[in-house]
Amino acid sequence: MKELVVVSGKGGTGKTSIVAAFAALTPSKVLADCDVDAADLHLVLQPEIRSRNEFRSGHEAVIRQDACIGCGACLVNCRFDAIRTVSNADLAWMFGAGIHACNDCDVCVRSCPLRSLDMINAMREASGEARKTAFVVDPISCEGCGVCVDICPVKAISFPERVSGEWFISDTRHGPMVHARLGIAADNSGKLVSLVRQQARQLAQDQNKEFILVDGPPGIGCPVIASLTGASLVLIVTEPTLSGQHDLQRVAELARHFRIPAVVGVNKWDLNPDMTDAIEAAAVTLDATPVGRIRYDRAVTAAQVAGKSVLEYSNNGVADDIRNVWAAVSALMQLDKPKANREAP
């Protein structure tokens, strides 16, 4: 099975439009949209959703106020600034803390920010008094590490699983597609990307498809790494700008770091032909082969507005360019070299 991942480093260079056009050119494949943060491929392919699944990932700490004794161990040990105090920020609260369940666990001694035994003794003596400060977890900052859950001397912190999005298996006019939607302000996009790719592979296996076409996310961080590890070939779509060139370099180095063969396509190349030459020359030094140029054409935006891929919208000009890039990429994918030392089925 072969897997082509289309990435860009810089956002907005035309990845999704090119993937949608490729989708119209290959008969036997599974599509995967790995830009789970801001997935757009479905806007062109209008998938009919066949199955809808929750994406559960990681956990989230929740302090049960009725059980909390206000010792502050969670606050002191959280490295992600996710514990908020609800009344004054003054440390004076510590003296009023109601330690009504002290079992000499020693956690207060280990976590006291002032390392003061006097203070701890005062807290112990104050046992039974009402608390003046409530501690709460800020779900947006919580990293789900569980340190507070483990350190809480009275086990007052629950740790429910987080539902961080949804993923779908759908049918499109160009074949089956796996896609996802990350929850608002959720994290773990890398895990969701891995899940989408894994489901796409499974689907390809079940339906005897030999090829997976992946629309990747921008950047070089976690979701990009999750998108390209183990792929047969990476197509980097860039644009002839200094930013495009800069970002191409970083994503090409990333591909090289993970030993994935990479090729480069320059989109809107005619906006700056000299820059296009420079980018292609730079790509070669990064072991990324140039596979073609795609001209600037307003038909690309017009096709998007019409909810079509550019190949369905216009039949020459930019469509020819995309066909040529596809011919080069698909020829490379048939070769053994990009496939070599990749996981065998």
Partner: peptide
Amino acid sequence: PGTSCPVI
């Protein structure tokens, strides 16, 4: 770009 942890 995006909507996940780096943006937040």
